[in-house]
């Protein structure tokens, strides 16, 4: 059983937000519109956070692209009263939009603020949307799914072509788009996969590691240093 994970190299990341927009296009994430945006209700499964370090009194800035970290021990799933968010066997933390009652407990519980709520009906089905991903109604929570539908498609394809499914065929939209090749995706359980190799790099670290959420999105620090 694969264990899907992602490595993001902060040394390469230029904060360009290609991943953000790629995600929006791939996953039918609506633009919430001017009014709602100003009310801080933008939905952005992938969000580029900007860290200004204080010592250099804001001189240094660092971009941290933040998808759902797909925690291996996710605090968000435990608190869901209806199993509308859960960790699947391959480690992907999923949402069931049709079941979510919109209590937003998972949002309150996620230490990384990776979950977003549909405060209104932001969009209807329409042209330009990706038919592989459902359009969310008002009142439910959504978040990065590691582009799970792409995994399903890749598997289906392999099946149709009567060959083994090759993990390299499963690439999320953000990783595919990243113009600095800062996002590497793959099977962490396979020691020779690139993502597993990078995850062992001396530059590797996890966000809020001390919380013990065991994120499967791993970051590489900026600057010199091996790896």
């Amino acid at each position: 059983m694969a264990l899907w994970g992602m490595v993001i190299d902060l040394d390469r990341c230029t904060g360009c937000q290609a991943c953000v927009m790629a995600c929006k296009a791939e996953n039918n994430i609506p633009a919430v519109g001017e009014k709602e945006a100003k009310r801080e209700r933008i939905i952005s499964w992938m969000q580029v956070l900007t860290e200004t370090d204080e010592e250099h009194h804001g001189e240094k800035m660092r971009f941290i692209p933040r998808p759902c970290l797909q925690c291996d021990d996710p605090p968000c799933t435990k608190v869901c009263p209806v199993y509308a968010t859960y960790r699947n066997p391959e480690g992907i933390v999923a949402q069931i939009y049709a079941r979510c009652i919109g209590c937003r407990f998972c949002m309150a519980a996620c230490p990384y603020n990776a979950k977003y709520f549909n405060w209104h009906t932001y969009q209807k089905e329409g042209p330009g949307q990706n038919p592989d991903v459902s359009v969310r109604p008002k009142g439910v929570v959504e978040k990065c799914t590691f582009c799970h539908h792409r995994l399903q498609k890749a598997r289906a394809r392999a099946l149709a072509e009567k060959r083994d499914f090759d993990p390299r065929e499963y690439v999320p939209a953000c990783a595919e788009a990243c113009l600095a090749q800062a996002i590497v995706f793959g099977d962490l359980s396979d020691p020779v996969s690139e993502v597993a190799k990078l995850a062992r790099s001396p530059r590797a670290f996890k966000l809020q590691e001390e919380l013990g959420t065991k994120p499967k999105v791993i970051y590489l620090t900026e600057g010199e240093g091996g790896g």
Binding site: K78, P81, V82, A84, I101, G102, C103, R104, F105, N118
Partner: peptide, 24 residues
């Protein structure tokens, strides 16, 4: 709590799919 729900219409799910791990 009912007032706070995004989908009060789905309250029944708490019984249908209740997850006892949740403090709610």
């Amino acid at each position: 709590i009912l007032v706070d729900l995004g989908r009060p219409d789905r309250l029944l799910n708490v019984i249908l799919h209740g997850r006892y791990q949740s403090p709610l």
